[in-house]
Write a protein that binds this DNA or RNA. Structure first.
Length: 523
DNA sequence: GTAGGGTTAG
C-alpha cells in the first residue's frame, strides 16, 4: 500500500485512470477517509472524475458512512451527467441504504430507467439492513415479476429477510425454491439457510442443512454454533466446536463470540471462561465484544464481583456493551450498588438512551426503592427521553399478527381483551401474579418499556388463545422480554390449554410444552 | 480497473 502511494506521488501529472486506481487501492485497505481525501485533491487539480471514480467514492461514503459527503458526491454526479450510469446509480442505492436513508434509496431505485440484478439486490439488501424484511420481500416479488434471474447474493439477502420475519412456513418455501435452483450446494447460500432456520425457531432444520453441505468453511461452522447459541444449547455448541477442530477448520474471532454467547445462555461459566482464555492458541486477539460476552457470562450466573474485577483488568477502555452487560446482570440479581455504578458509566457514555434508564429504574423497583424510581423518572423527563413502544408479533397458520401496547386496531380486539381478562383470572386462581410490573405502572401512570412489552405480549397470547384450537402450536416471535411472571404464565398456559408455545425473546427461543420450558437459562 | 453478499447480538 505504502509502495503504491509512493509510486503515485512520484507521478508528475496523473490522469483520471491513475487517480481511480489509487482511490480504489485505499478503499480496498479500508482507508476510506484517505480515499475521499484523494477524491477532493483530484478535483482541486481539475481532473474530471468518471463513472469509475464515482462508484469507488460512493463505496467509501457507504463504508464510513458519511451522508454529507455522499450527498455532495451526488451533486457532482448530476452536474457531470452520470445520473443514467447504472453502476453509479447502484452505488447511490447502496449508499443511501447504508446511511439508513432507505426512503431515499427507494426513490433513486424507482427513478432508474434500467435495473440490473445488482440494482434489485442492492434494494432488497438495503431493506434487510434497515430492518424492513417485509419490504425486502415485496421488492423481491416485484423483481420476480420482471423475470429477472436472481443470483446467489440475491438469495442470501432474501433468506436474511425471511429470518427477520421469523416465519417458518416462508423459510421452508424459500428453501424448497432454492433447492430447485443452481445454488443448492453453494456454501454461502446454505450458511444463510442455517441462519434463517435458526432465527425461525427450527434448530433441527438448521442442522439438516449443515449436515448435507460438503466442504464447510469457518463461516458455516460459526453460523451453526451461533444457531445453537440462540437456542440455548450451549453443550451442543461446544461439541460442534470440538468437531470443527477435528475437521481441521481453524476458528476465527466470530466463532468465539458465538461460542461465548452459547455458554452464557446455558450457564456454562467455566467452559466459557476456558474458551476465552484459549483464544490465544489460535492467535486471535480478544476484542471488546469478547470481553463483553465474558462479563455477561459471569454476570448472568451471579458472579457480579468477579465480573467487575474482570472489567477493571481489561486491557482496553470498557464501552457501552460491557457496562450494559453488567447492568443487565445487576437487574437479574437485583444488585443495586453495582447497577448504579454501571448505569452511571452508561449515562456518561450514552446520555440519551431510554433503555439504560428503564433498566436502572427496574432495578430500583425490584428493590422497592420507589423514591429513586421517581427521581429517575424526573431525570428522564428533564432529558426529554421518549419511550420506545414495545411490540410483539405472533404467527398463526403462517400469518403474522403484530401487536403494540394498548392496540385496539384488531377487528376482534374486544374478544382479545376479554380473553386477556379471563386469562388473568385463571392465572390468579392458580396462584400466579402476572401483573407484578403494573406496580410500576400505577406509581405515576407512566409505563416503562418493559411493561409495554409485557402488555403487548399478553395481547398476543390472548389472541393466540382465541384463534387456535387447543393442541396447536403457537409461535410468539418478536421482541418479547418476558419477565419471570410472564414466563410462569406461559408455562401454565401451555399446560392448561394443551398448546405448544414457542417464544422468541430478545435473542433466543424458548419452547413451552406441558407446563415445561426446554430452554432454561436463568429463569 | 467500477455495483449487491453468508457467521457476532441487546
Amino acid at each position: 500500500m505504502r509502495y503504491a502511494r509512493d509510486l503515485f506521488d512520484d507521478f508528475p501529472d496523473p490522469d483520471v485512470f491513475l487517480w481511480n486506481a489509487i482511490i480504489r487501492c485505499h478503499s480496498r485497505h479500508n482507508l476510506f477517509r484517505d480515499a475521499l481525501g484523494l477524491y477532493s485533491k483530484m478535483q482541486l487539480l481539475w481532473v474530471s472524475p468518471d463513472s469509475f471514480t464515482f462508484t469507488c467514492v460512493l463505496k467509501a461514503c457507504s463504508a464510513l458512512p458519511s451522508l454529507e459527503m455522499g450527498r455532495r458526491v451526488q451533486c457532482q454526479i448530476l452536474r457531470r451527467g452520470f445520473d443514467s450510469d447504472v453502476f453509479v446509480q447502484n452505488g447511490l442505492v447502496t449508499f443511501y441504504a447504508k446511511c439508513g436513508e432507505i426512503e431515499l434509496a427507494n426513490k433513486v431505485f424507482w427513478r432508474l430507467s434500467e435495473r440490473t440484478i445488482v440494482t434489485w439486490t442492492s434494494m432488497i439488501s438495503g431493506y434487510v439492513q434497515n430492518g424492513q424484511p417485509l419490504e425486502a420481500l415485496r421488492v423481491y416479488g416485484q423483481m420476480r415479476k420482471t423475470n429477472m434471474k436472481p443470483e446467489w447474493i440475491t438469495f442470501v439477502s432474501v433468506l436474511k429477510a425471511c429470518g427477520q420475519v421469523g416465519s417458518i412456513d416462508l423459510a421452508k418455501w424459500m428453501d424448497e425454491y432454492i433447492a430447485s435452483s443452481e445454488f443448492k450446494d453453494a456454501v454461502v447460500v446454505n450458511t444463510a439457510l442455517i441462519d434463517m432456520y435458526a432465527k425461525c425457531g427450527s434448530i433441527n432444520l438448521s442442522r439438516d442443512v449443515f449436515n448435507r453441505t460438503k466442504d464447510k468453511d469457518v463461516v458455516m461452522w460459526s453460523a451453526m454454533i451461533a444457531a445453537y447459541a440462540v437456542h440455548g444449547e450451549g453443550q451442543e455448541a461446544i461439541d460442534l466446536f470440538k468437531a470443527m477442530r477435528k475437521a481441521g477448520v481453524p476458528p476465527n474471532d466470530v466463532t468465539f463470540v458465538s461460542l461465548l454467547s452459547a455458554c452464557k445462555h446455558s450457564g456454562l461459566v467455566e467452559d466459557g471462561w476456558k474458551l476465552f482464555h484459549c483464544m490465544s492458541e489460535y492467535s486471535i486477539q480478544p476484542r471488546h465484544q469478547h470481553y463483553a460476552c465474558v462479563v455477561d457470562l459471569l454476570g448472568r450466573a451471579g458472579y457480579l464481583d468477579r465480573a467487575y474485577e474482570f472489567i477493571r483488568n481489561m486491557p482496553m477502555e470498557p464501552g457501552l456493551s460491557i457496562w450494559g452487560a453488567l447492568l443487565t446482570a445487576c437487574k437479574i440479581h437485583q444488585h443495586v450498588p453495582l447497577g448504579e455504578l454501571a448505569a452511571e458509566r452508561l449515562f456518561s457514555l450514552d446520555p440519551y438512551s431510554t433503555g439504560h434508564h428503564v433498566q436502572l429504574s427496574n432495578i430500583y423497583a425490584s428493590a422497592r426503592m420507589w423514591d429513586r424510581v421517581s427521581k429517575l423518572r424526573v431525570l428522564m423527563k428533564e432529558k426529554g427521553l421518549s419511550k420506545d413502544l414495545g411490540y410483539s408479533s405472533i404467527e398463526i397458520n403462517g400469518k403474522l399478527q403484530v401487536f403494540q401496547v394498548g392496540d385496539k386496531s384488531h377487528p376482534r380486539f374486544k374478544e382479545i381483551f376479554e380473553e386477556l381478562e379471563s386469562l388473568e383470572r385463571r392465572l390468579k386462581e392458580a396462584g400466579f401474579s402476572i401483573d407484578a410490573e403494573s406496580v410500576l405502572h400505577d406509581l405515576d401512570h407512566e409505563e416503562t418499556e418493559e411493561t409495554l412489552c409485557n402488555h403487548s405480549e399478553r395481547i398476543a397470547i390472548a389472541y393466540g388463545l382465541i384463534s387456535t384450537p387447543p393442541g396447536t402450536t403457537l409461535r410468539i416471535i418478536k421482541n418479547l422480554r418476558a419477565c419471570v411472571n410472564c414466563h410462569a404464565a406461559i408455562k401454565l398456559i401451555s399446560k392448561v390449554e394443551n398448546r405448544e408455545i414457542v417464544v422468541r425473546d430478545a435473542n433466543r427461543f424458548h419452547h413451552f410444552k406441558d407446563g415445561n420450558c426446554s430452554c432454561g437459562d436463568y429463569w
